[in-house]
Design a protein around this nucleic acid. Structure first.
Lengths: 210, 210
DNA sequence: TGCGTTTTGTACTGATTGGTATAGATAGAA
DNA sequence: TTCTATCTATACCAATCAGTACAAAACGCA
């Protein structure tokens, strides 16, 4: 049952407030985002922010989690939903690229720029993004393992390494977006990235020059 | 000839001062590094810093350039110095990985974390790292083009795309280092990265499963 | 209506920020 | 030595920072 609370009702939606905070942190980083920036973007005043989220640090952690679920997580979701394996890998990179180069939004990735920059200085950030990264990697690897079991991939396919490689390649895309490369320019390398992830093992490296 | 200047001589080496600033910015980012942090690390006081470098922003730009030449640039240097193409690519990734996981130093890359995070907020940072990235990419591409001319690579080898891919993969490594992955763990994917860069074109994608 | 409870708005806090004024210190040149 | 130029050291500045005290406002409930 829902606990009815009396008192003045909250005049804003905390979930929408977090998404506004996401954009501010995404654009300016943790230290670069002042409380004035945050409260102005959300449209509330300081005491409301502190009563709801605790302090700036915890709002930042909430923003990272919300970003992971509602934005960067969509790439893994699309990966899992795609019909074929190759489509799944391609869709993963495409979705991540779209998220990182959306017009009118900050370019790049909140985690790849703001969170990573403050990972050592803001308590809890490092642990949080490590855990989120591991979870994404595990979801990618799970599909590779399933594909091995279904004989869609050879038995010696290094699923763990390739799942890690996928995230590295995704972060590479995101880096280019952050420094201003256009969506089209980054999309140019898409098939190279897909092929890198799905390349089969070649014991004598016969498919590559010396 | 050297212009002799009278007056009290400077008690520190500006070049070493910049390298100290590199470490502070590398660890804490631009906004996270206070003037107290910087002057304490360098061992000078504020007026000396301002007389020599102008202000915090210009010291940051100097630190980014010094980092690019003396640290991250060593990966491209090693790439150019390696005897064979495959060794060159492997050495590039190895050197970049060592730089990003050196014990006792900040993990990751000053450019990949601090500079990228403040690229939109600190004037000149975005332009500077864009230009540095383009220059590195051009140096990588030049060797690929030479290898094509020498018939060490097939004529249709996409040198521009693969040079961009190399930098993406390098930034992916750097991201993992920043979030705490060990050098050994990251090195595990080294051959995958080398193969991705040097993979030959396969019109029917016959070397990959569907 | 009036009470208890929670949120909101304003105004404030001490601490820290980047940057500087000023005086003393240290060199070469005359 | 004396003059001039440059650097160093201390102490300071206004502005901004994250965080909070307090009173008015807005609800459910009686």
């Amino acid at each position: 049952m829902v606990q009815k609370r009396s008192g003045r009702p909250r005049s804003f939606d905390p979930e929408m407030a977090v998404m506004q905070a996401v954009e501010v942190f995404w654009a300016k980083g943790y230290e670069g985002a002042s409380l004035d920036d945050l409260t102005k973007a959300i449209g509330i005043n300081r005491p409301s922010l502190y009563a709801t989220f605790g302090d700036k640090r915890r709002l930042f952690l909430a923003a990272i989690q919300a970003y992971g679920q509602k934005i960067s997580g969509t790439a893994v979701d699309a990966f899992e939903a795609a019909p074929t394996l190759r489509d799944a890998v391609r869709t993963f990179f495409q979705t991540a690229l779209e998220n990182a180069t959306r017009p009118g939004k900050p370019q790049g990735c909140l985690i790849g720029s703001a969170a990573v920059a403050s990972a050592n200085d803001v308590e809890g950030v490092g642990d949080l993004i490590r855990q989120m990264s591991l979870r994404s990697r595990a979801r990618l690897q799970a599909r590779f393992d399933q594909a091995i079991a279904d004989a869609d991939l050879p038995p010696d396919f290094p699923s763990e390494r390739r799942a890690a490689l996928m995230i590295e390649l995704m972060q590479g895309q995101v880096h280019r977006a952050r420094i201003g490369d256009s969506r089209d320019a980054i999309a140019d390398g898409l098939e190279d990235r897909v092929s890198a992830v799905l390349a089969v093992q070649s014991p004598n490296t016969q498919n590559s020059p010396s």
